[in-house]
Design a protein around this nucleic acid. Structure first.
Lengths: 133, 133
DNA sequence: TCTTGACCCTATAGTTGCTACAGAGTGCAT
DNA sequence: ATGCACTCTGTAGCAACTATAGGGTCAAGA
């Protein structure tokens, strides 16, 4: 029972990943190449499913592909200290916080520009004016 | 005096844009093609400077290239109502707000995962665990 | 048995907004 | 006259996929 195999479509459905994306992950070496059937179809095992789930979760949390690659290789070295994992996660968190701050500044500026628009003609539009030199 | 001309490098410095980026904007039709000198150098006028400043400002505010293109063409039609301008700006603001919300959700999740890490070995790392299926 | 339709295969090009070469020409100052 | 900073064109690369073309495979129904 531990030997069930999946087609790429099965794997796609199970992990909510597109088929092309799975092939892409294989091409860039994130997901190991699976066996092939007689008809040259990819044939995945449970370990592929696990690995792809890991990738998806990490990607959903916004980790970059290279970070995911590092996390995957760390997750295989089970008796090493987890500081490296922590470092990647914290770096990513800091990045997210920086992006939030940037976007909040943007929102303020954009909001104040929009608020000034009296919606007359473009000649008197404050939005265009704010963009003009 | 209204007839000073600039090299691409001058324009780059004045607008804090890279030279290659200016050529890129020309290639995609965002910035009109300038005259050329005898030596085939681009020769820009004040109107180019104005237009590039507009582009830079809009890009700094996070508008996509296609939105900038629309804003530019609207800004030339001075006696039309400015609702279209307003629509582009509001659409962009909504997008920014959506991104902020997404990133805040991400930050919460990431933060709570990191908080759980006791920094032992990877085998017991909560971060890896949170990613694993 | 044949055929339909859903699936799978590879390879290549497109997306966004630039950035980075390579290899060549221009222009000004010393 | 020669060095150096600047400019030119064209092409390829980045992230992280997505789309398209042009085929092959497989299970089920008529």
């Amino acid at each position: 029972m531990a030997h069930e195999n999946f087609t790429i479509g099965d794997l796609a459905k199970a992990t909510e990943t597109k088929v092309v994306t799975i092939r892409y992950y294989e091409r860039i070496g994130l997901l190991p190449e699976p066996e092939r059937t007689a008809g040259n179809y990819r044939s995945y095992s449970a370990s592929h499913l696990g690995r792809l789930s890991f990738i998806r979760r990490a990607r959903d949390l916004g980790f970059a592909i290279e970070q995911v690659r590092d996390l995957l290789s760390l997750s295989d070295q089970r008796d090493r200290p987890c500081e490296a994992v922590d470092a990647i996660a914290c770096e990513h968190l800091a990045e997210v916080e920086r992006k939030i701050a940037d976007l909040q500044a943007l929102r303020r500026e954009l909001g104040s520009i929009i608020d000034q628009c009296g919606c007359g003609t473009i000649a008197e539009c404050r939005i265009i004016e704010a963009l003009s030199p």
